[in-house]
Structure formats: structure tokens, C-alpha cells
Design a protein around this nucleic acid. Structure first.
Length: 412
RNA sequence: GAGGAUGUAGCUCAGCAGGCAGAGCACAAGGUUGUGGCCCUUGGGGUCGCGGGUUCAAGUCCCGUCAUCCUCCCCA
């Protein structure tokens, strides 16, 4: 019979990777909790137009990477390619703004983009991210960056942080026109990709790695000449405060983001250890997006991290609890073993009850492969064996054994 | 969407002048009379990714296809 394989670009995450996945998510959640972000559990599908209007009609994500289908009611639906759009939609639709103040939300889950699979890049991938709505102060930018920085530090990942400012919508628009005008004059010397970028996203040309393009970009107008005082002030304050918080960063005036909605602050956490330019987390401010999607004028900012990419970078997992493996020495002791295991688990002891039959040798071998720290042989008596030292101690009744286990003193 | 590499045992891979499909690890049994790891012996395991073609003969050559990895593009 022909076996069925998983769909291209999709993956089963199990074993060590699943452990890393959970560890990463739990670490993020711990910080979200401490920074008082509230979880929002979002749908995996949205109306296609949501992404067209937020991510940008011209972006690759919308143009060629979205999973789009028509449902039985004739609705044009997309599997979400990112989380921010849904978050903003929910903020508006649920009228959170009506409560006043500001809102700090986080989400986690699968995203879908139809693209060529690569290391740390899948068609279904997972992001964890957070958004802040209604906070215009630069202190929000600082805190968001600081939080992500702290999380990645705790995960013990090797990364660098790059930050930039794109200015507000109008000055960015003016700048983009100027840049385009400048690049047009040297269009012939640009690489094929950049000729295309000139039309789709001129800012991207700044980031091109081709020598010829780098040469042209060198004398191009820079965004800083077009920034409003307000934007300059924000950026300076952010840098100043990040330094005070001991956050290491690199100012990269060529850093641009692929999504259309960013304004002012943008940042990227990059690790050299993975390919594709190595971005593991990124985000920025998007002060116009909420109103653009029909909500009240609301400043906002956020970030998202790619969990698969982080899995590639996490090396050490926190230590597991010690494992106790219960081996009944014959079927006569199955019931006794079940009772013992159940009592151990009630004491919050990680307990593996051996579920198969076989020679003692094979069962002990199995216990060894399960990385058992201790084994308990069950017969008329109980024998506690320390797998590291090989020492054993005999207990004549369950009570005495449980007492020792509960006290945490392994005398063997 | 463009370019390149690779698919042989559960895993890592060898085999290519077309000529009986292999090794190490893992697994199982035993050596060791219910006690793991180290060592030794023996054993079970394969549609050589899939489909077609060339040939007396194809894992090996040719075409197609699917999948994986890498470089771009793009993104987290």
C-alpha cells in the first residue's frame, strides 16, 4: 500500500524539537505575563481583503504567497499569512478602544505562506507575537524592544538587534519618491531584482547585496533628511533609553521591512547562524494601520518571532525532572504496580510504568533507553535502583518507599 | 518564480566499467539460570523515492515525476 506523506512545506514537530517549541513558547509567555500582555486567540482564516489592505496589495505575501480559497458561501477567504492584521481587525471589531487606555495583546500559532521550503522556513510555520494599541509614547517602543531582547537573551540565543526609523507616512512617501527619482537615473546599472524593486518597493534597493547596487546606494538620499522633528526625537529617545537598559543594538539606516504598514520605528533580531538573512524576530510601529482598517486613529506597534527559526537556534533545554520507572517483575504484580504508580504521580513524581512484557534484561534495557534516573522493581517487595550508581535498596512495604520518594532523599 | 545538490535497511551512508544489495549504529535473542550501560556471538529487517525508457541484464545509463536540502527572490 502506498503510504501517504505530508504535504510539501508542512511538517511534524516531535521529539526534541517539540520540546524546544514548548520551551520557546513558554519562555515568551512568561515574559508576556510579567509585562502584563493579554492573550488573544485568533482565527486561522480571515477575509482576503484584510490582508490586501494591511500587509499591502503589492507585497509578495499578498501577490503570490497566500493560501486563498472560496468557501461554500462564496466568501473569499485566506489562511492567515501573519498575525498583526487579525489582531488589528479584532481590536477594531471587538471595540476594545471603547474601554479607553491602551491594550497589550499577544498571540501564538500557525501562519501559512505558499513559498519555497528552506531551512527554518515552511508553508505552515508558527509565530508568537505581541501588539500594543493606543500607546504613542516612545516608551512603548523601548519597552517592546526591551522585552523581546530579554526573551532572546533568556533563550540563550546568539543574535544582533538592528533598529531604524522610517518616519511617518507622509515623509516616507516624499522620501520614497526622492529615492526613486535618484535611482531612476542609474537604473541601467541596477541588478534585475532592483529594477523590479524600483517599481514594487524602492526602499528594498537600499538593502541589496549586489556590489553595483551598493555603489549606487552609497550616495542616495537617506531617510534622515526627510524626517519630521517628531520622528527624529522619537528615534533619539528610543536609542538613549535602550542604552540605559543595556540593550545592545546596531543602527542600520538601510533596514526596511517588507510589510507596507510600518511607520517610524522598525527593528529586527537577526542571527547569523541561520540562512535567509537570519531574521528570527522583527517588528515596528504602525500608527496608521488601525485607522486604515476602519478603526479610530490609534497608534500601535508590535513584533512577531518565528518559532521554527528559534528552534534551530536553541541549544540547551532546561533540565527534566528525574524519571522513575516502575517494572513489575511478573503479571502478578501489575495491580500493585498500577497502584504504586498512581500514588507516585499524585506526589508529583514523574513516573513511567513499563507497559510491555519481556525478560528482565530487556525491560531494564528499555528503562535505560528511557533515560530513567531510578527504577523500582515490584514484587512482594520493592527494590529502588539508582541507575547512575547501580545501587539498590529494598523496601518491604509501599509506605516506606513512598516516604523516601516524597522526601526527595535518595539514599541508595 | 530562478539556479544547484540529493533520494539505497529505523538512522548515517557505501556500492556506479551496467552483472547475487552492503557496512556502522539501532533493534531482537543469547553469552550472563529475572538486573541496564562495555564486550562477544547469532538473528530479523529493503518495491534501491515513484513511473516509464534503453539493455540479455538497471540501485547504477536516459526521460518524466514527487520529496528533501542549499543559493536567490521574499519574509518571521
Amino acid at each position: 500500500m502506498q503510504t501517504i506523506q505530508k504535504v510539501r512545506g508542512f511538517q511534524d514537530i516531535y521529539g526534541e524539537d517539540a520540546k524546544k517549541y514548548r520551551y520557546i513558547v513558554n519562555t515568551f509567555r512568561k515574559y508576556f505575563e510579567n509585562f502584563n500582555f493579554k492573550e488573544i486567540i485568533l482565527p486561522y482564516v480571515e477575509d482576503v481583503s484584510l490582508f490586501k489592505r494591511s500587509v499591502g496589495e503589492e507585497t509578495d505575501i499578498v501577490q503570490k504567497e497566500m493560501y486563498v480559497f472560496t468557501d461554500k458561501g462564496g466568501r473569499e477567504i485566506a489562511l492567515r499569512p501573519e498575525g498583526t492584521a487579525s489582531c488589528v481587525r479584532a481590536y477594531i471589531e471587538e471595540k476594545m478602544y471603547a474601554e479607553g487606555g491602551y491594550h497589550k495583546l499577544f498571540y501564538e500559532g500557525a501562519m501559512f505562506r505558499y513559498e519555497r521550503p528552506q531551512a527554518g522556513r515552511y508553508r505552515q510555520f508558527h509565530q508568537i507575537g505581541a501588539e500594543i494599541f493606543g500607546a504613542s509614547s516612545y516608551i512603548a517602543d523601548v519597552e517592546l524592544i526591551y522585552m523581546v531582547y530579554s526573551i532572546l537573551k533568556e533563550l540563550n540565543i546568539d543574535f544582533r538587534l538592528e533598529i531604524n526609523t522610517l518616519g511617518d507616512f507622509s515623509s516616507r512617501k516624499v522620501y520614497t519618491e526622492n529615492l526613486k527619482y535618484y535611482l531612476k537615473r542609474s537604473e541601467e546599472k541596477l541588478c534585475q531584482d532592483c529594477k523590479r524593486r524600483l517599481e514594487t518597493n524602492p526602499l528594498r534597493v537600499l538593502d541589496c547585496k549586489v556590489e553595483g547596487c551598493k555603489e549606487i546606494v552609497k550616495n542616495a538620499p537617506t531617510i534622515s533628511d526627510f524626517l519630521l522633528e517628531e520622528s527624529k526625537f522619537r528615534f533619539e529617545k528610543i536609542k538613549e533609553n535602550l542604552k540605559i537598559l543595556s540593550v545592545d543594538f546596531i543602527e542600520n539606516s538601510k533596514l526596511v521591512r517588507g510589510l507596507d504598514y510600518y511607520t517610524d520605528t522598525v527593528f529586527e533580531f537577526i542571527s547569523q547562524k541561520i540562512g535567509s538573512q537570519g531574521t528570527v524576530a522583527a517588528g515596528g510601529r504602525y500608527d496608521n494601520l488601525v485607522s486604515q482598517l476602519g478603526g479610530p486613529d490609534t497608534p500601535a506597534l508590535g513584533f512577531a518571532a518565528g518559532i521554527e527559526r528559534l528552534i534551530l537556534l536553541v541549544e540547551k533545554l532546561p533540565k527534566d525532572k528525574p524519571l522513575y520507572t516502575v517494572i513489575p517483575l511478573s503479571q502478578d504484580f501489575y495491580t500493585t504496580s498500577l497502584l504504586l504508580s498512581s500514588k507516585m504521580r499524585n506526589l508529583n513524581i514523574k513516573t513511567e510504568l513499563i507497559l510491555k512484557e519481556g525478560s528482565l534484561k530487556s525491560l531494564l534495557k528499555l528503562a535505560n533507553r528511557l533515560n530513567s534516573d531510578y527504577v523500582i522493581f515490584v514484587s512482594q517487595k520493592y527494590e529502588l535502583k539508582d541507575m547512575k550508581s547501580g545501587n539498590q535498596e529494598i523496601f518491604l512495604n509501599e509506605e516506606n518507599l513512598l516516604e523516601i520518594l516524597n522526601s526527595g532523599e535518595k539514599t541508595v
